[in-house]
Structure formats: C-alpha cells, structure tokens
C-alpha cells in the first residue's frame, strides 16, 4: 500500500513537471503597479488641460511622481512613444514639491497625511491633475484616488477639485469612476 501510494505520488509529480513546463494557460493577472501605470496613461487621454498649460502645441505633457516611485520601469514602458493630443508624454520623478515645474499629471505617494495636505494646498490652481492611493486624498483636495475592490483597481474622482483647477475630465472617465462629494458645503 505504502509503495503504491508513493508510486502514485511520483507519477503525479512527474506529470506536473512535464505539464508545467510544456504549456501555460494562466488567467490574465497583472501587477497592481502595472495596471495603475496604465491608468495614469489613460488619464492623460481623457483629460483636457487649458491651452496655457503648455508652452507650445508640441511641448511635452509631464507625468510627475512625487514621493517613492511605486511604478518603476513600467510607467516608462507604458508611455514610451505615446502622445496626448500631440503632446509627447514624459515621466519625471520629484523628490520634493519644490522641484515640480511644468507638470500636468502628478502621482503623489506621501503616506503622511499632514505633508500630503501641505503639498496639495501648494498645488492648487497650478493646472495639475493630482492622483494618489491615500484614503484622505480627495478630502484634502486631491482629484483622483485609486482603490482596490475585489482585487480590482477602481478610482474615485473629486469633480469639484478638477473643476476649480480648470481641467476637464471626459465623461467617459467620470462614468466609470465613483464620484466623491465633499461633505462641507
């Protein structure tokens, strides 16, 4: 009996070995950071900046990352050779908010709430589409927040913040987002 079980076990292992190396048919999954990087790219396609946000019609559209960069090389791969309304896409990584210049989309990755608030108030009316993962982000005046639901990346938009910076987010994007309403009137 013992020997028999052992035999079966090894046959199973051998089977798996051959099987596993021969074919691969995985359900599609992706890394969180990859999906978010692609969302950042998509946001550039569905947002309109005021004309004065760019020095020329061919000036680059800058995607900035403030704080630790969660995307790594993926974001560079995603935007390589891409354009938004004729503006070539460029990624810039900022170590502090003083470095931010000519930026159009900014992913803010600051876990400390006070600092995030300070950064956001400094960016007001700069025409920058601000994005983050932090739960307090929209409350503090941020524009788009990622969240995960059932292992899927979803996003929430704060339309008031977008509007007050004279940005226009396409209805296509708004329709898919959950809408944040600030509770103070």
């Amino acid at each position: 009996m013992k020997r028999f079980i052992k035999k079966i076990y090894f046959i199973c292992l051998a089977f798996i070995l051959i099987y596993g190396t021969a074919v691969k048919a995985q359900p599609p999954t992706a890394m969180e950071k990859q999906v978010k990087a692609v969302f950042l790219f998509n946001f550039t396609q569905f947002t309109e900046w005021p004309a004065n946000a760019f020095s020329s019609p061919e000036a680059p559209l800058v995607i900035g990352i403030l704080g630790d960069d969660p995307f790594g090389k993926y974001i560079d791969e995603v935007i390589a050779g891409e354009k938004a309304n004729n503006h070539p896409l460029v990624v810039k990584r900022y170590s502090s908010e003083e470095d931010i210049k000519n930026c159009h989309v900014l992913f803010i990755n600051i876990s400390e709430s006070n600092k995030q608030k300070q950064v956001l108030s400094g960016l007001k009316n700069e025409g920058i589409l601000t994005i983050s993962d932090q739960s307090t982000f929209l409350k503090q005046g941020g524009m788009i927040r990622f969240f995960t639901k059932d292992n899927k990346i979803q996003f929430q938009i704060n339309p008031d913040a977008v509007k007050s910076d004279n940005l226009i987010i396409s209805s296509k994007l708004l329709r898919l987002a959950s809408i944040y309403k600030s509770d103070k009137k």
Binding site: Q26, P28, T29, A30, V38, Y74, V78, I153, Q154
Partner: peptide
C-alpha cells in the same frame, strides 16, 4: 502576465476588471 503594452490596449472597462 499581461505586459504593460497589452494592458494599454484594453478599454478602461476591461482595465478595471483586471485582477491584480
């Protein structure tokens, strides 16, 4: 694993349905 290039081709709806 879907590469960034493959992900980019997805519609927003599909992107929101990718399990991460």
């Amino acid at each position: 694993v879907l590469s960034p290039v493959a992900l980019k081709k997805l519609s927003l709806e599909d992107l929101m349905n990718i399990e991460v």
